Amino acid sequence: MNDHSSPASQRPPRQTRKGLTSTGARKAASKSARSRAREFALQALYQHLVGRNELTAIDLFTRDLAGFHKADIPHYEALLNGCTQIEADLDALITPQLDRSLAEISPIERAVMWIGVYEFMHCADVPWRVAINECIELAKEFGGTDGHKYVNAVLGGLAPKLRAAEVAADGQRGERPQAPASDA
């Protein structure tokens, strides 16, 4: 038998990633309390954007959803209340990154971008790459087919502006930033 087999033939068989659905989104059992908080905040923000219901009613409805008790409730509250309080500021930051009008953005992608931008601005304990990745996961699970790519581009464009020091530090460590540094 030939001992000179190629390295590829010596590799173990490829394993499937556990904890993912068929679309690549994380399964509920593998989600952290913070990830769950973002999901519930997204659902509440969607209701806010589409139905313009009273925030108290949206919050009560959301807290009654299955699995809410497993969420990081303070983070959910910060996202829901924070995003709705500064929605005009969030839209003002997002709009220059868009290649279409804000009205043409789906409410899911808009709410996901709100969450990402809010975390950039107000959640220093969430690394910028984590914020982007979590928002990509939300867009994959709840948004349109390629919505996650759009979310990634917009948040990647804002990260150098809103988290300039952190993005620069990643660049100095040799990590490739999501988007080129802008006039931060």
Rank of each mutant, 00 (worst) to 15 (best):
N2R: 13
Q178P: 03
K27I: 14
Q47M: 09
G24S: 13
A29E: 07
G67D: 02
A111W: 07
E141Q: 12
V151P: 04
Q178W: 08
L138V: 04
E137F: 08
V154T: 10
Q172G: 05
A168S: 07
G24N: 14
K149G: 00
I105N: 00
W114D: 03
S30Y: 11
A169D: 09
R14S: 06
A25D: 09
K70N: 08
S6Y: 07
I132K: 10
I132A: 04
G156N: 10
D3M: 07
G82D: 11
Q10F: 03
L49N: 10
H4C: 10
A124C: 03
A139S: 09
A103F: 03
G82T: 11
E175Q: 12
H4K: 14
T21P: 01
L102T: 08
A181N: 04
V154I: 07
A57K: 15
R14G: 00
A181M: 08
A139C: 02
S9M: 13
A44F: 14
E141I: 07
I58V: 08
L55N: 06
P12F: 14
G171Q: 03
V130F: 07
E175P: 01
A28D: 05
D59Q: 06
G24L: 11
G147Y: 13
G51P: 04
S35E: 14
H122P: 06
E137R: 12
F68R: 12
H75E: 13
D72G: 08
Q47K: 10
R36V: 05
E87L: 13
Y150E: 00
R52N: 15
H69I: 15
G19F: 14
E39L: 02
G19W: 10
D3S: 06
P7G: 02
G143D: 02
G51A: 01
V154M: 07
N81Q: 13
L158M: 10
K31D: 00
R17E: 00
M1S: 04
E141P: 01
A131T: 01
E39M: 08
R26Q: 14
G51V: 04
A103Y: 07
L162H: 00
E175V: 11
A8M: 15
L138A: 02
R173V: 01
D146V: 12
M113P: 00
L155P: 12
L49I: 05
T56E: 05
G19N: 14
A169V: 04
H48T: 12
G144L: 10
A29L: 12
G51Y: 05
H148D: 02
L98V: 03
R17G: 00
P13Y: 09
G24C: 10
S101L: 11
W128P: 00
S106C: 00
T21R: 11
A159E: 05
T62L: 15
G144H: 11
A78N: 06
E87P: 06
T145I: 04
L138Y: 05
A131N: 05
L90K: 01
I86L: 04
A8L: 15
P177A: 01
T16E: 07
A66V: 09
H48I: 04
M121N: 02
R38S: 02
L60W: 12
V117R: 01
I94F: 00
L158S: 09
R176D: 11
I132C: 08
M113Y: 00
A92E: 03
K31C: 05
F40E: 06
A103H: 04
T62M: 13
G24E: 15
Q43S: 13
D64M: 15
W114P: 07
V112I: 12
G24I: 09
K31L: 10
L155W: 07
I58E: 02
E166K: 01
A131V: 01
L45P: 12
